[in-house]
Write a protein that binds this DNA or RNA. Structure first.
Lengths: 231, 231
DNA sequence: ATTACTTAATGTCATAATAACGCTTTAACA
DNA sequence: TGTTAAAGCGTTATTATGACATTAAGTAAT
């Protein structure tokens, strides 16, 4: 699950399976790949992410394992299984990871796999092949409950951001309106933001101040306690 | 991970591998088994739990997947892999589930597998084979953060319990002293306990009142919100 | 130069939740 | 009847929360 944010809504990176299955109409699915014998789960997730986006050192966290047995019958639907010719009816277990990336930083990696990758607004995704919708929903739930205890949202924002951008992100994650005054107070009190000198420019209104995430200060806090992030 | 509570500390059910490996001194490991082709992950976890404890309809939740590649070299250390003769060097991915069971309800199931099962105090477990210690620690972390948002502790207590028993359980889970007066107030205010008529007997002091968990009321609350359980 | 327009930024107050305590009450046993 | 161990009640200071309305700072239009 690769989440992105464009300042307004949450996006998810999907892969068009069309190229791999000529006889099926264009259909988007979650990215994924088989694990190699010489890597652990985290490494595999990092590799797949890198193959797709060209990005590394990204927030990446496991959120669950999935594996219904009826997948066995569907080998022909799972392009990546074609590589495993030695196993006639492979049972597939998916280990789900989610990553949060800055869409602004993101450039599609010109690898063959990534050519047919596409950002889709989270809210517009109503159907996905296999159990991918279940996986998607599970990852969102995980993202939400994680956001309640850690300020992970920073990974989705640009390096410098305004408090309103951040507010919009949180509204997108929790899918509800949040009072901006209370939000500001809470975020500021956490003491993990540095207010920059720089302001927005070229806007036809009062420019917003830019802030930056102070990771060092954040880690100090983490050791000595526990965040609560509820809105 | 099978957690139990005896009124004083948290226990974990371990399996003695001795019977399976004659040339190794007695060594305890986490219970586990291979998944079957016709079951999903949840079903497999339930089955293994049932094989071990004879219990079903137990609190059971997935907490993570684990799989370092160096396991490949250790097939001879993994008794259950002997069943898979067709795969010379099987890569093993563990999907971890944890369950909470009432030690009082528990009777060792007289199956061959369970004969060498043993309850071990959580705090006394300093070393386990393979990556089992990592898995154990991960499950405890999961148990803690889960206990902070849901009152899952009831699954570890007997049907009828006193508030002090419950307090002791929470102290064991979080590994710290909790003020009993504040604890009581908080728990009572949640409104998910039924105070019974029955009291403790045979104690040389004021007997404690028994309480019972009201699951129905709890579920009503769940729908309309979210628990917070911090001490 | 003035005004209009748009979004950023800020303050207060009532209420609820929390943590840290002290003290009294109770029932069983010796 | 006294002792004991825990139950049970209560207070207070502090902090967190939610609800709410106005002013500030820039650009654009006239």
């Amino acid at each position: 699950m690769i989440f992105g944010f464009n300042g307004d809504q949450i996006y998810v990176l999907l892969i068009d399976r069309e190229n791999q299955l000529k006889n099926v109409i264009s259909e988007y699915a979650l990215p994924g790949n088989l694990i190699r014998d010489d890597e652990n789960l985290d490494m595999a997730a990092e590799r797949v992410l890198k193959e797709l986006t060209g990005l590394s050192v990204i927030y990446l966290e496991q959120f669950g394992a999935f594996g219904d047995p009826d997948r066995i019958k569907k080998k022909e639907d799972q392009p990546w299984l074609k590589a495993v010719r030695s196993i006639p009816n492979a049972r597939v277990i998916t280990v789900g990871y989610y990553s949060l990336i800055r869409m602004s930083d993101y450039e599609l990696n010109p690898s063959s796999f990534a050519k047919n990758a596409k950002w889709m607004p989270l809210n517009s995704i109503k159907k996905l092949p296999f159990d991918h919708l279940k996986i998607l929903n599970s990852s969102i739930e995980f993202l939400r409950s994680n956001t309640k205890i850690k300020p992970i949202g920073f990974n989705l924002l640009p390096e410098k951001f305004t408090l309103n951008q951040m507010l919009k992100l949180y509204e997108a994650i929790f899918n509800k309106k949040i009072d901006n005054r209370n939000f500001r107070r809470k975020i500021i009190n956490l003491n993990i933001l540095d207010k920059l000198e720089e302001k927005q420019s070229g806007v036809a209104h009062k420019p917003a101040n830019y802030y930056k995430f102070n990771k060092k200060r954040y880690e100090t806090y983490l050791e000595s306690g526990f965040f609560k992030f509820e809105f």
